[in-house]
Design a protein around this nucleic acid. Structure first.
Length: 420
RNA sequence: CGGAGCGUGGUGUAACGGCUAACAUCCCUGUUUUGGGAACAGGUGACUCCGGGUUCGAAUCCCGGCGCUCCGACCA
């Protein structure tokens, strides 16, 4: 894509109503636009990143047998009354509205109820199980206080997977598979090293749930990590009993602030029972389905990546989620776009694009300093500069955004560099 | 939901109750410049969040509303 045609522009200063690093940088670089507190639009660059993130999650969910679907945002209140989650006294962050005829509906904040109800239509035999279904969906939560930029919004994208199993044993096996898939996802998102599977309060049906917590000063949670075993637990469950249970000693633990980027847990029969999701086993006996729930917010993950990986000059995207693989920057000669340098850059842009690379081509006739500053702010992993100077050498000048390292290579060697 | 702070061109800031609301940036014209946000000249752009009130006079003081941020509570 040509940067001259990108309608968004960078800005030097962040709006004063944003304090969080993720929102400041994402707004300055033109990835997102704030509509209101906790509500952000994703602009072309932001959407590209979001799609990279959802692409990675989708791949890993499919690997573990997930079937993608898309449930509705509008929610039928009768389902939620069956599980006692409609009443504002029980669940206080609903957005509710009304149909023309006065019928109350809610905007979905999570989707256990509707999906369980759908499954009840299709599941009748042990032969139908297990099932894993997931979706990417905009969730609405009427938070009393939105904060931390795109990391805690009132409207945000969420990947939610639900599993339906015959019994605890089958559930545990599926849970373990998805647990591993989550670890792979965070690794691929570039935050694997600082993301810990963390024991947290488990709710009614299991002792613990697991949160995936990424170390960051911008986080809202406090976790304790045991450096030796790699085990971690949330402050909310830090008791002697739990420590004994996990085989940890208080003295070894290191306290970290962290961002909850994922959360998985056993739901037991909390939803299947009230909503009538049962199956017949081999003996013809009616059994409740055991459910699990697995959340991961792509928009929060995007904010987390910015918080964790950016530097003083701007965003530093990992290759896997960057909006483009290459930022091609041309420093025009006196003739401008039609000069030797301009033509060479056009040619390279067309070559690279034909070879299938995703290239953002900064073809704007601006001074070098401004283009470099923009390039750093936008944070594409690899920058190629076409200039009079480089043209004379006959090689491509590559600069790696993350390390700042510069290297000169031939065009033929580029694919090897990009594969790294 | 408790506490605190703040709303002024697109963005960031300034202006004692008193002149045509100022400066920077962005944007537009032109000249010049070209490897880290250049320089000069000119120009566009604001009912100072909204509604009331006090006053000869309100961006400024008072009341109400709306919005934003931060701390805390909450976060299935």
């Amino acid at each position: 894509m040509r940067q001259s045609q990108l309608f968004t522009k960078t800005r030097k200063e962040a709006p004063k109503d944003e304090v969080s690093k993720n929102a400041q940088l994402l707004i300055r670089a033109g990835y997102i636009h704030k509509e209101m507190a906790g509500v952000y639009s994703f602009l072309p660059l932001g959407l590209r990143v979001m799609e990279k993130i959802t692409g990675i999650i989708r791949e890993e969910m499919n690997v573990v047998g997930g079937q993608e679907l898309s449930l509705t945002a509008l929610q039928d209140k009768s389902l939620w009354e069956k599980t006692d989650r409609w009443d504002d006294a029980k669940v206080d962050n609903w957005f509710k509205t009304k149909l023309k005829n006065g019928t109350e509906v809610g905007l979905g904040m999570t989707h256990e109820e509707p999906l369980t109800a759908i499954m009840a239509e299709y599941v009748s035999s042990y032969r139908d199980l297990p099932i894993a279904a997931y979706q990417f969906q905009t969730k609405f939560r009427n938070e009393t206080r939105a904060k931390s930029g795109i990391m805690r919004g009132r409207e945000f994208l969420m990947k939610d997977m639900y599993t339906f199993s015959k019994d605890e044993k089958e559930h545990a096996a599926y849970y373990a598979k998805i647990h591993d898939a989550y670890i792979k996802i965070f690794k691929r998102l570039g935050i694997g090293d600082t993301t810990h599977a963390t024991f947290a309060a488990g709710g009614i049906f299991s002792k613990y749930s697991e949160e995936f917590q990424t170390e960051s000063e911008a986080g809202e949670d406090l976790i304790y990590v045991d450096p030796k075993s790699g085990k971690a637990l949330n402050k909310e469950v830090l008791t002697d009993e739990v420590l004994a249970d996990l085989g940890l000693s208080r003295a070894d633990l290191v306290e970290k602030k962290s961002i909850e980027v994922g959360n998985i847990f056993n739901l037991g029969t909390k939803f299947s029972e009230p909503l009538g999701l049962t199956y017949l086993n081999e003996k013809g006996e009616k059994q409740p389905v055991i459910m699990g729930c697995y959340g991961l917010g792509p928009s929060r993950a995007m904010g987390t990546i910015v918080e964790v990986l950016s530097d003083e000059n701007g965003i530093v995207w990992p290759k896997s989620v960057a909006p483009f693989a290459i930022h091609l920057v041309v420093l025009h000669d006196k003739e401008g776009k039609d000069g030797t340098v301009g033509k060479a850059a056009e040619e390279l842009y067309s070559d690279l694009t034909k070879q299938g690379y995703e290239v953002l081509f900064d073809d704007r006739e601006l001074r070098p300093g401004e283009k470099f500053a923009d390039s750093d702010l936008i944070g594409i992993p690899l920058r190629i500069v076409v200039s009079e100077k480089n043209l004379a050498e006959g090689k491509l000048e590559l600069k790696h955004r993350a390390s700042g390292k510069v290297e000169k290579i031939t065009e033929a060697e580029l694919s090897a560099v990009l594969a790294k």
